[in-house]
């Protein structure tokens, strides 16, 4: 507040201004309902976008993870099969029947 506001004429004028019509009651319920509806509309698309993006990201992670795991499992199976084949070959080549 500036020094001008403390001038006696302005203080008297302030007293006079207090005689103006009072502001009517605010339609609080309507204003709050409209504001919250607008808030919901404003934030809803963002939430939907976040949910969609989250679902896509999760699908991608699961897909890539599953593929990598499947590939490694397949490689492991091939290695095991190769080991088993090699062992069988080894048994056959050692004439195990005569040894027994």
């Amino acid at each position: 507040m500036s020094i001008i506001d403390h001038h006696p004429l302005n203080k008297a004028l302030a007293d006079v201004l207090n005689h103006a019509s009072p502001v009517p009651d605010m339609p609080a319920a309507r204003i709050e309902a409209a504001a919250m509806a607008a808030f919901g509309a404003q934030t809803a698309p963002r939430h939907a976008w976040v949910k969609t993006f989250g679902a896509l990201a999760a699908s991608l992670v699961l897909g890539v993870g599953g593929f990598v795991y499947y590939q490694s499992w397949q490689t492991e199976q091939k290695a095991l099969t190769a080991d088993a084949d090699a062992f069988a070959e080894q048994l056959l080549s050692t004439d195990i029947d005569s040894a027994l």
């Binding site: 006696p8 004429l9 203080k11 008297a12 004028l13 007293d15 006079v16």
Partner: peptide, 8 residues
């Protein structure tokens, strides 16, 4: 009122 305020 203004006058009274100034005098006051």
């Amino acid at each position: 009122l203004l006058q009274a305020s100034v005098e006051g």
